[in-house]
Simulated scan of single mutants.
Amino acid sequence: MVRNVIGSVLALAGATAAVWSPFRAWYDGRHGSEYRIQDLFGGITDVKADVIGSILLPFAFAAVITLAGVIFRSRLLVAFAGLTVLGFTVLWMVRVGQAEGGLTITGDGTGLGDGVANALGGGVLLLLASLVMSGRRAPRRTLPLGGPEPGRHTEPWPPADHTPPGGPVGPDSPTQPGHPTPDDPYGAPTRTMDVPPWDQDPGQQPPPSHRA
């Protein structure tokens, strides 16, 4: 949060410096707003430009991109705005150097002016702001107290529609080995044997009550 605030302040300061720079002297007392945008691609001329069609146009575009980057906390947008300001400033310096045979810096108002310094400083501030900003973070997912763990699906056991092999288990159903029953809640396997009555087994002695 603090990094985003500091980065936003630096970004807005850099965009302000870039937009203000064309209204300052760029070379030999000539303001940046007097250079036509097409002169940056076809060569510097003495024709003065309108404010809308001057070098102010790409800087104003960079300011809008900066504002969007601050609102959406996008480091890429702020960095793109800084590269735009620096790119057009360097391109202007190359064209003026070709037209003048070189660039000079003097203290008597000739040569490079403070408008170029404002533009370069604004572009550097925008790049610095993109490094300082932390950007947007993905929202954290929170679970309600006592809820299931992420990635795990829980359901009651046994399921409501589960029917063991051989039919349902209940008081009126046959005993199924390995399944819980009312008499055997632990589901222990059982074995049953059919024992014939004593009078049908020749080798079986009758009970004492039936002996002669």
Rank of each mutant, 00 (worst) to 15 (best):
V94T: 09
G53Q: 13
S130A: 15
G170V: 03
P189S: 11
P189M: 02
I37H: 05
G32M: 03
R140P: 03
G102C: 07
P174I: 01
W26G: 13
V195A: 08
R191F: 14
L12Y: 00
L91E: 13
V85R: 05
S130Q: 07
G102Q: 10
D28K: 06
A160C: 03
L91A: 14
D183G: 14
N118Y: 15
T106N: 15
V85I: 12
R152P: 04
P196F: 02
T106Q: 12
S209C: 04
R73S: 13
T89I: 00
L112C: 09
H162I: 01
F80Y: 09
H179Q: 13
Q204E: 10
D184K: 07
P158H: 11
L77G: 07
V94F: 11
V47P: 11
D184R: 09
P207I: 00
R137I: 01
L12Q: 00
V96W: 01
L83T: 08
D201S: 11
A119K: 01
L91N: 11
A49E: 11
A60V: 08
V5K: 06
T181P: 10
L91K: 12
W92R: 04
H31P: 04
M93L: 15
H162D: 11
F59V: 02
S8Q: 03
I6E: 01
P144N: 06
L143K: 08
Q200M: 10
P58Q: 01
T175V: 13
T142R: 14
W20M: 10
P185Y: 08
P148R: 04
D46K: 06
P168H: 06
G135L: 00
P202M: 01
K48R: 15
S74A: 13
P189Y: 10
P22H: 05
G187N: 10
A117F: 14
Q176R: 15
T84G: 14
P22G: 06
S54W: 08
L131K: 09
D50H: 13
A17R: 00
F72N: 05
S134G: 15
M93K: 01
L125Y: 02
R75N: 15
H179I: 00
G29P: 13
R24W: 13
F23Q: 12
P158G: 11
H162C: 06
R30M: 11
S21T: 04
R137F: 02
